[in-house]
Simulated scan of single mutants.
Amino acid sequence: VTQRIGISDIIIVYSRPSVNDREIWGKLVPYGMNNLGFGTAKESPWRAGANENTTIKFTDDVTIEGKPLKAGKYGLHMVINPDNSATIIFSKNHQAWGSYFYDPVDDALRVDVSMKDISHTEQLTYIFNEVEANSAVASLNWEKKQVPFKIGVDVSKVVLADIRHKLENAPGFQRQTWEQAANFSMNNGGDLEEALGWINSTIEGMFFSEKNFGNLNTKAQILNKLNRSAEADAVMDEAMGMATVFERHGYGRQLIGQGKKDKALEIFKMNAKKHKGEWPVDYGLARAYSAMGNYSAAIKHLKIAATRAPDAPNKNAIAANMAKLEKGEDIN
């Protein structure tokens, strides 16, 4: 079973024994550490499955219940206790049969967890639940018990490392790779100076460099995050001179999202002047006036926008926004 978190994969390989009306916990799976009567181990945990060693592989560094564990493949073992607690063991030895040759010297990590009661699961099953942007819970389900453990991934760190690798290889010959790198770093807690260097490379200095609205806008956003607002404003002034009607519209919406309502209205008015009668300039003005609480002006421009909407989805969106404005609700 496999789960991806960001660009990191977690792979669990295991066998699936059945309950078959047997008593599992404390009997078939004995509590604590035990001498299994075979192999070199004097005390062995449960193999957390059947037959060969259950294994778990991480393509990148992770945390298990908050504790760090390096990327790699591990033997997965468990110590089950009668008080509904369990210890998860990640062993560097992932090639031995079962846990007959378990040696604590090979432990890479041990974590303690609490078991949960669940509905009957006939065949032992590993699942991933509670999957989030930076974590997932891996759970062993069998009979009426679940053994869960939380796996965390520093997705931004992993992706940024992957980005740096790509920039040094074939994808780095494309301007878009550098633009994507700068945008990801800017929006995901990366090094802003590094991101600024990446976006500057797309603007000038490289064989693929090409100054355009998109990379100038990204540069301005990075500069703003670096508290270099005067430089950011100068960059955006340059970007406005080469913006399309849709790029200027998008920038206006970006400003509304940042709470810069007056500046947004200025941009939407500029768009309407440069692209008189075109879609979606009046939609932009409607959004700007709505953000400022001037719903009557917003309705006026939204009615004009409705006559210029190019397709059914936009017409439907305008109708929905008109209903909001008529109720005195902001459409942003």
Rank of each mutant, 00 (worst) to 15 (best):
K150P: 09
L167I: 06
A319T: 13
F90N: 02
K260N: 10
K211Q: 15
V1C: 12
N212Y: 02
K303C: 03
M242Q: 14
P82Y: 09
G6P: 06
V113K: 02
E210H: 11
I222A: 07
I5L: 10
L167F: 02
M186C: 04
R253F: 10
H120F: 15
P104L: 02
E65P: 12
S15N: 08
A195C: 06
E130Y: 01
E65W: 00
S114Y: 07
K225M: 10
K145T: 11
N271G: 05
Q221H: 06
T59K: 03
M186K: 10
R248N: 08
D237H: 12
N215K: 10
A96H: 06
G328Q: 09
A320E: 14
P17Y: 03
K166T: 05
E43Q: 15
G39W: 00
A272G: 13
E132A: 14
I118E: 10
G205Q: 06
A161R: 02
G197D: 05
T55R: 01
V245M: 13
G172K: 03
A312N: 11
F173W: 11
L109I: 06
V1G: 13
K303S: 08
E329W: 03
G328C: 04
A312E: 15
G252V: 11
E52A: 12
G259A: 03
R164E: 15
P171S: 12
L124W: 05
M242K: 12
S290C: 04
P280A: 07
R308F: 05
I11L: 14
L226M: 10
A230W: 01
F246I: 14
A161S: 12
G214C: 00
L192K: 09
Q254E: 12
M242S: 12
N224F: 11
D112V: 13
K327G: 02
S209L: 05
E247I: 10
A170W: 01
T59A: 03
D83C: 04
S44M: 05
K327Y: 05
P45S: 11
W25E: 10
F38N: 09
D282I: 06
Y289D: 07
K273N: 05
L325F: 04
N187S: 06
W178P: 01
G75P: 04
L124E: 14
D61E: 08
S290Y: 00
W279P: 04
A320H: 02
V137W: 04
N215Q: 11
A286C: 01
A230H: 00
H94Y: 13
S296L: 14
G190R: 02
V137Q: 03
T55S: 01
H77K: 15
G189A: 07
N20G: 00
E231V: 00
I5T: 13
A195F: 02
G66F: 14
I12F: 02
S85Q: 09
W178Y: 04
L36M: 11
A48Y: 06
K70F: 10
E231N: 04
M242D: 06
E143P: 03
F128Q: 03
